[in-house]
Computed example of a mutant assay.
Amino acid sequence: MTDSPAEAKSFVKSVRVFLTVSGVIALAAGIILLVWPGKSATVIAGIAVAIIGAYFIIGGLVYIALAIFSREKGGWSRVGHILLGLLYVVAGVIMFANFYASSAALIIITMIFIGVSWIVDGVVSLSLLKNSTSRVWTLLYAILSIIAGIVVFFAPLYTAAVLWIIVGITLVVLGVVQIVRAITLKTTATEAEFIQ
Rank of each mutant, 00 (worst) to 15 (best):
G75M: 11
S77P: 07
L83E: 07
T110C: 07
I32P: 01
V12P: 07
L139E: 07
V79S: 03
A189K: 01
L157M: 14
I68G: 02
S14I: 00
I82G: 12
A182E: 01
G122D: 05
V167I: 14
I109M: 15
T138Q: 11
A41V: 03
W36C: 09
K186M: 05
L126P: 12
V89C: 04
T110F: 15
L86A: 09
I112P: 05
L19D: 00
F96R: 02
K39L: 15
L106K: 05
G175S: 05
V173Y: 15
W76T: 10
V35W: 13
L84P: 01
S103V: 12
A50E: 00
L86Q: 02
A6M: 13
G74T: 12
G115C: 07
V152D: 00
F56T: 00
L126Y: 11
M111G: 03
P37S: 03
V152N: 00
A28G: 09
V120T: 08
A91S: 10
V151P: 05
F99D: 06
V162I: 15
F194K: 14
F18R: 10
D3Y: 15
V15R: 12
A67M: 09
K9D: 05
G59R: 10
R181L: 08
K39Q: 14
L128R: 11
K73G: 00
A101V: 12
V21N: 02
S22N: 15
E72C: 07
M111C: 06
I64D: 10
V180E: 06
I169M: 08
T138I: 08
L126I: 10
A67T: 06
I169P: 01
E191L: 06
A155R: 08
W164G: 02
